[in-house]
Amino acid sequence: MKFGNLLIAGITTGSIYAMFAVCVSVWYRVSNILNLAVGDFAMVGALGVDNLYRVKGLPLPVAVVTTLVVVAVFAYVYDQVVLRIAQDGRRPIEGIVVTFFFTFALSFFIDGAAKVLFGTDVHAAPTLWSGPALTLGSLNFERAGLLVLACAIIIGGAFWLYIRFTLGGKALEASGENSTGARIVGIDTRQYRRLIFVGTAVIAAVFGIVESPITGFTYLSGATISLTGFLAAAYGGFRKPGRALVAGLFIGVLEAMLGGYVSTQYGDTVLYAILAAAILAWPRALGFESAVSG
């Protein structure tokens, strides 16, 4: 059952990519900024919990809550200080390219701070659900992987319910689809920019915490996570969270299959080559043409 196990592994990593891709595209819809710092929040989540629990000796729940609160406060302050000046000031900065570099700088800053706070070694948050892998026939389910999947389903489901059944959620959708139209009914798009930025930072931190036992994180791991989420979001045209989700899952499965059947060493190389070829072959179908802008 090699295929089955590869599929499980692929779906697990794919669900992580998918969540980050959804975070990137939901925020891009309301802010027009591509966030390259999501992965860094994940890294801070994992290493923060590890530091508070293992080094500082706090109880695990306290460590988790403290880390999430710190991430949320930091994201809020960043939005209030930097993004407010950049987007709402007298000279709003336009253009995807320049605003993209703000999150780029943020990513560098977080990585640097993490290096000072947590050091350069590989660490991981403690496993929240330890024990041997569960088996079903010849299929193996790692507990950490199941936890990741559960988080993805719970958070994704909660988000879906919010969009589907509350006026606030519909207003969020509206401001993503048509910000002028949203302002007409009094929706404060800046408020959603802030809410989603803080929200995605916390969600990213949660995923960092549950995922880190599988791979282990260093202070530089954020960039890799962001990059994959970013790529998956790109295949959803950055504006379609649903497609970003599918693309994330697909990339995860494809990665696992290539690693399992083609080559462990060059699996990633082949994966990226396929992804690049797909963009060049069908840019319009993948939603790139509409997102073009200076």
Partner: peptide, 20 residues
Amino acid sequence: ASGLALAVATLMLPLIAVGY
């Protein structure tokens, strides 16, 4: 490719190269 498509497609180049 133009704009973002060009950016994302060429973003793969360093990833491919480093693996190689």
